[in-house]
Design a protein around this nucleic acid. Structure first.
Lengths: 154, 154
DNA sequence: TGCATTATTGATAATAATTATCATTTTTAT
DNA sequence: ATAAAAATGATAATTATTATCAATAATGCA
């Protein structure tokens, strides 16, 4: 049976890995909810509704795997949960960053100003990778502060 | 007894908090090692050498407190440990960002190109805080990739 | 299509970082 | 010096993540 994005299937095949039901389901969750950042728990519950056989360990393993492959990206907003979202390397994922409220944990995605950012970061990435012999795969940009709601509650 | 940075003492006093021995020791560790990012464990061991009475819970509590006050900043590099470093709001802390190896966890600080970054980010922060009514306190910028060592080992 | 090989899975136990509890100790203002 | 309240340390509790291992499912090939 062939499932999910053929490009990803191919890449897995090439490295001796298999495109399994669990992996396809988890990939679909990300593909169908671009711009959302899921914790392992959230992925588990959604996946579990689709196929109740899926276990927690598989979710963690799959998230690790997809992150290693550069398909999803690890994010940490400071609330103790690791979250994941599709990388910009994937189709249809717009360049965006995050605004994180350090009080309530709320996360806002923003896409403004990113053309300028994009240019600057492309330049910085190039120079840094040369200077430090570092192969840069992605970047994380977060603005931390207090959101509207939390700010008013004082 | 008066201890540590007078400005910080004052701020604590104003909010009904006290400048204690433990807090002064932990503050000194950060002040004396700018640009380093410490995990709670590391802070515990260093503080413990200075005053073996200090307990783990106090370290966690103090780190939380200093982060709330904007004196230190929480960082997560994806290895499961939360780390902290002095914020740029503090004296003598240069503007810098991080290069994180997703393979071995190595972190390189860099300070290049940050003048341009600084300008752009000042602008972005201003616009974002207006648009989203968000009071921005700091930002986190990380480039993730594979370091020299890990890249060669294949 | 059926079969053998082997990656993957699910259930569960183990690990490890962080948080909560509470009696005791320190700090501070008076 | 003392009373009031904040902070501490020891430890238990919580919780996210990782490791283990027998059972299962995916793949390549006949």
């Amino acid at each position: 049976m062939r499932r999910g994005n053929p490009w990803i299937c191919k890449r897995m095949r090439e490295e001796g890995m298999r495109m399994t039901q669990a992996r396809a389901i988890i990939l679909n969750i990300f593909a169908g909810n671009q711009g959302e950042h899921f914790s392992a728990q959230e992925i588990f519950f959604i996946a579990h509704r689709i196929n109740p056989g899926i276990g927690f360990a598989t979710v963690y393993r799959t998230l690790d795997l997809l992150a290693q492959m550069g398909i999803i990206q690890k994010l940490e907003f400071g609330d103790g949960l690791t979250r994941y979202e599709m990388t910009e390397a994937m189709e249809n994922v717009p360049h965006h960053h995050h605004l994180v409220c350090t009080e309530c944990g709320k996360v806002i995605d923003y896409t403004e100003f990113t053309d300028e950012e994009k240019e600057l970061f492309a330049k910085v990435e190039k120079e840094l990778s040369e200077k430090y012999k570092f192969k840069i795969k992605n970047h994380i940009i977060q603005f931390c502060g207090i959101c509207n709601n939390c700010g008013e509650r004082r």
